[in-house]
Design a protein around this nucleic acid. Structure first.
Lengths: 107, 107
DNA sequence: CAAGTCCGTAAGCCATGACTTACCGTAAGC
DNA sequence: GCTTACGGTAAGTCATGGCTTACGGACTTG
């Protein structure tokens, strides 16, 4: 239902780079900012927006804030895209979620 | 590969409304603009951008330009989202495409 | 061919948002 | 307790882009 906000947030290339960094695993803000072409405060701002959109989640670890991808947020966008295949929607969602759980279980 | 452009394009609410109108079937520009809260030229501009991003396609029918959704463009975005499930990606894509064809064939 | 429809493009306005530097609170280490 | 890392927030700048009105070209119809 919040796919609109998520899409607006995913529109920014820097923000997508942040997400891609997090794809490899949860990281602190400094670690994320290292290697990105923008300043650390800029990354902080992006993380705030990503969090509001439900695309990342934050956990405190001492003085550090560890961010990680929140896949449910991405699923909402996926669901909207799937809706363009109309009645195939339900099949998509079910299969997708089932596949994911199966994969996870295997590890 | 062009998912970046597609995401930037999908970020705009009006543009998504245009797409949603087209979900019900191919339409001419006037028909699309009717019911939308913006002017017809604005719709034209959005259609241009949507076309550049590969999200719609255009066909001429006399003086009218008929636009329709180009699902392959949406699939690129889907594929990128799926990549956040890493190796589950291939399974998703295969299942999704297969499901779609099955559904289509049933009609 | 003249009048009317369809729609793309140009020009200009204005709001939004991405970025920077500067600053401040909080936690950790010597 | 001081100093140093960590990172969120404020303020200000600047570019981007979505919208409008005005215009012009292409096709259709009488």
């Amino acid at each position: 239902m919040a796919y609109g906000l998520a899409l607006a947030v995913l529109a920014d290339p820097t923000r997508r780079q942040v997400l891609e960094r997090l794809r490899e695993g949860a990281q602190a803000v400094n670690a994320i900012a290292a290697g990105l072409p923008v300043s650390r405060p800029a990354v902080s701002q992006h993380l705030k927006v990503l969090k509001q959109a439900g695309l990342v989640e934050e956990r405190s670890e001492g003085a550090r804030r560890i961010y990680s991808v929140r896949r449910d947020g991405l699923l909402e966008v996926r669901a909207w895209l799937d809706s363009f295949w109309d009645d195939a929607l339900d099949a998509f969602k079910l299969e997708a979620e089932r596949s994911y759980k199966v994969k996870k279980g295997k590890r």
